[in-house]
Design a protein around this nucleic acid. Structure first.
Length: 285
DNA sequence: ATTAATGTTCAGAA
DNA sequence: TTTCTGAACATTAA
């Protein structure tokens, strides 16, 4: 579930570790199936220990520690991964600890309940090959309106589905796609290539508004309570959700429509059928 | 007890 | 080229 706002919150929460050196690695033994670890823990330890964290960055939905020596540690939380400076929620699902030099919180943890995420140590070349611009589109937060339109405008995909494509633009996931389109007043099934300039402007504005507000709230902690910031505290944007997982409830915008749940590309989509009209068919000549 | 649902990414197919 | 489908995994709710 961590999407751009949650991952950005993680990044900010651990940014203070910049300048510290990795002095050790702890990989808890567990009965669970191990997460994707690259390279294997022994080689990871050999190559990472001794290097200094020069910067803490975000690439789409991933947290990247830039190390000296052209190395990078990439955390990819996918569904349930957390990057923490505080004590993890439990030890059962703890996957990795990085010991750092200096006083204060000397451990950086990676915790992942479902274990779909990964931790990788990559060279600059590997990072470029795996997460370069041909694999990841421009960051959703820094996207200008013309770039947004250039990257989505000619697609025949429904707008909701296109917003989730990380090669087109990076950072938006299932929750925020529904929220953004509700704020923009656009039906999620509308094909990209049939949106007009006014509608692209609305999507661009809504995208920025929703993501910024969600970051301010430190992300959304859903019902299962999995997502936490780096200090193991929940976000609060779930209290501002307009449509996500609110099917059957009245639309907070018009007050009259009932929020609908549908499925697109095997993912749940939420929208108000009254505020988000499918739009007219192409005018007859 | 079984099944569905959860959301992200990738491999492989259409 | 573009788009679509299923699998990966752990847990909870129905």
């Amino acid at each position: 579930m961590p999407e751009l706002p949650e991952v950005e919150t993680m990044r900010r929460g651990i940014s203070r570790i910049a300048g510290r050196r990795i002095t050790g690695l702890h990989v808890p033994r567990s009965r669970l199936k191990p997460i994707r670890f690259e390279p294997a823990p022994a080689a990871f330890r050999r190559r990472a220990v001794g290097h200094t964290i020069e910067a803490v960055e975000r690439l789409g939905k991933r947290v990247v520690l830039r190390l000296d020596g052209d190395l990078a540690v990439v955390f990819e939380p996918r569904m349930t991964g957390l990057v923490l400076l505080a004590e993890p929620p439990d030890t059962e699902h703890l996957r990795l600890g990085l010991r750092l030099n200096g006083c204060g919180a000397p451990w950086l943890w990676y915790w992942d309940r479902r274990g779909l995420g990964s931790v990788r140590l990559l060279s600059r070349a590997q990072l470029q090959a795996d997460l370069g611009p041909h694999r990841l589109g421009p960051d959703a937060l820094e996207l200008s309106l013309p770039v947004l339109r250039a990257r989505l405008g000619s697609s025949r995909q429904p707008i909701k589905v296109a917003l989730l494509d990380q090669r087109r633009l990076a950072g938006i996931g299932n929750l925020y796609a529904s929220e953004i389109l509700h704020v923009a007043g656009i039906h999620p099934q509308r094909p990209c290539d049939r949106l007009n300039s006014r509608q692209w402007r609305a999507i661009h504005a809504a995208l920025r508004q929703v993501l910024r507000e969600a970051i301010r709230c430190e992300g959304s902690t859903l019902g299962d309570g999995t997502y936490r910031n780096a200090l193991n505290r929940p976000g609060s944007y779930q209290n501002h959700h307009r449509v996500y997982q609110r099917q059957g409830q009245p639309c907070p915008r018009c007050g009259r429509g009932q929020v609908c749940r549908t499925v697109q590309a095997q993912r749940a989509t939420f929208f108000c059928p009254r505020c988000q009209r499918p739009g007219r068919r192409r005018p007859k000549r």
